[in-house]
Amino acid sequence: MIAEALLPPRVIVYEGAGATPLAATDRAGLFASLLDRGYAVTRAGAGAADLQAGGAMIVIGCFPDGPPAVSDTSGRCEVLVRDVTGLSVAETVAAVEEARGERRMNRPPEASTVANGPVANTAETWKPWFPVIDTARCTNCMQCLSFCLFDVYGVAGDQTLRVENPSNCKVNCPACSRVCPEVAIMFPKYHAGPIDGGPVAEADVHREKMKVDISALLGGDIYAKLRERSADAKARFSKERSADQALAERRRCLTKLADAAQIPREVLDALPSPEEIQRRVEAAAARASAAKEAAGAAAVGRST
């Protein structure tokens, strides 16, 4: 789970009474620069700004008489004030960064970094990639829970499916959405519909059901197929005794499977041992089965 300690400071751009408005030509650029560095921003004009539920708030404005003394008397959050009179957009952003100090926060990648390839996924550079459930479509069949090896899914108190550990999800892997027969799993940062959250057409539902059937044809259990291929490869490599050849062969064998489920190669390379896969599959299946049984029992209880 992404730590709550990474709650970014909220920047309040204050232009109300007692402050001179920012230059109109700078305002949108300043907002964009702060947002692209991961800050939440509130433009407080004549109206008031809500206090943040925790963490820190950095109030910036052009205060002709110097920065006012402001504090949150409820003690819910720390309030810092910076006078940015005469500062350029870049200097204002620097002043916000200085005010933030050592507070940790998740940061979006810079455009130049993105252009150079994937960014290392750490607590402070985490790309928010995870499944989102369309509860209007989900039937709580728990296929996704059984499928996922990384404990992303869980079961809520009412025995419905829940995305429990979003940050366990493997970035850019939409594979669980491919096993959902109801097209109920979205990845909002996916590049195309309906997985991105776009409208679901009848043809999409049909196609997804077909994909589930295809995975069944692959052997009934996609992980069983992975294990089988891994075991075959291991047998061959033990004779060949070449780690490089082993890796190359493993990749070749998995390519078709990866294409079918749109699983990124990095995810396949990071799969645990066949024994660990087996253990996780069984654990996930047991959780799914228990949730369905409990939901069934609750339904019977309600009807009697």
Binding site: G16, L51, G61, D65, V79, V81
Partner: peptide, 9 residues
């Protein structure tokens, strides 16, 4: 001067 209106919700 008038202080910024940081008020509760």
């Amino acid at each position: 001067m008038t202080e910024p209106q940081l008020q509760t919700e």
